[in-house]
Nucleic acid binder design. Sequence first.
RNA 1: GUGGGUGUAGCUCAACUGGUUAGAGCACCGGAUUGUGGUUCCGGAGGCUGUGGGUUCAAGUCCCAUCACUCACCCCA
Length: 419
Amino acid sequence: MSKSPIRSVKGTQDILPDQSTRWQDLELTIQKIMDCYGYKEIRTPAFEHSEVFSQGVGEETDIVSKEMYSWTDQGGDNLTLKPELTAPVARSFIQHNLGVQNSINKLYYIDALFRRERPQKGRYRQFHQFGIEVFGSENPETDVEVIALAMHVFHKLGLKELTLQLNSIGSPECRNNYRNAIKNFLAPHFDQLSQTSQDRYNNNPLRILDTKSPDEKEILKDAPNISNYWTIDDKNHFDEVCNLLKHIKIDYQLSPSLVRGLDYYTRTTFEITSNELGAQNAICGGGRYDGLVEKLGGKPTPGIGFAAGIERLLLASSSDNKIRNIQIYIVGIGNDVRPTMINLAEELRSNDIRTSFDYLRRSIKAQMREANKLGAQYAIIIGEDELKDKSVIIKDLSTSNQEKITLDLVQKYMKSLPL
RNA sequence: GUGGGUGUAGCUCAACUGGUUAGAGCACCGGAUUGUGGUUCCGGAGGCUGUGGGUUCAAGUCCCAUCACUCACCCCA
């Protein structure tokens, strides 16, 4: 245990070299798949004006009401470290008139987010998501492509035991009617509801459906089902989404209580869970938000997207950390050879050969040990004798064979080796 | 915000119901005749037992507080 008083902030974590290559591999996989689907990366600032979230995500949501890192800067601006990315991407989409340049915009991101919650397995205060947002299409094939893309990534990462849960929360009219129906239904039971559910009754009654309290679940057993409040268009849309999913053989579970916590959702909502995680088992959540762009001051534009938690993906997948080992380790004997060593190293690196050498002027034995520890394929040994006759010894560390060659032939020689 | 669990070496863990100088494995550094790694053998370094108080002849061990980590609730990625 370190006595040092200076530590990383609670809920944040360092990604050390023994993990960082896993992150790089994951990011590379995501980038390749995004490329295949024709999505372009968008990068937005780490912080935004707080209204982006209070208006876009909704004042009554947990994220905005109790989880944001917000502050007033020296100029008096109210700023917030982004706790989610759909609203900032929508803001950027509006600000730069992306909808005018292209009728469809398919965007993706890999980014860090911040929420002040009690940390837990798979939940951190700074965490990372990758996700996509599609602006400009309200048609069901868009919904299905978005879901298919998410599944594609997860399968590529070797995730098993995934469940896709699917629901439609309908259009705004439908939600209004349904909201009233829920309130009417719950009114006689109001006194039996928990404090939070009573609050939600007024603010966001649909969220009560998400409760995990057995008592409330019992009450909700006979609650009205949202599907009875869909408009014809809502129903057709959802049916098409389901049919297309079946068509491309993606299994799903209907989940009428999946209402999603954020205000901007309309129609399709979905969540993908992994049973290889703890309580925080959602690795991906998303849905359609046809009203968001307009709500943030843009022209009415349909949209849909998802976000997936990278820490959770890494927890659920068991991929190895593939360290890219050094290929050549240069061993030098005596201080006179140092200039030759560093020069040789630079030349090898110019030829894209991963090369390192000893900085501590240690014994040859220690240097050889280091070469082995670093997983080098070859050691190049330069001592006083070699310096004199302008040669080096090249030793294959897997076979222990070694041979002496002249210094000016090293580059050519290395190219002939199976590196 | 609420509850449970855990704090001993860089890491994983020992130390019988309180009883000498707190141990081991891994990792690290060095050595096993001169300029050669992995396996083996030998050696070395590394701890105010999270912190503060209390009980006791005696505390890593018991009690209290505090801090940190962790899991869970709420909610979500």
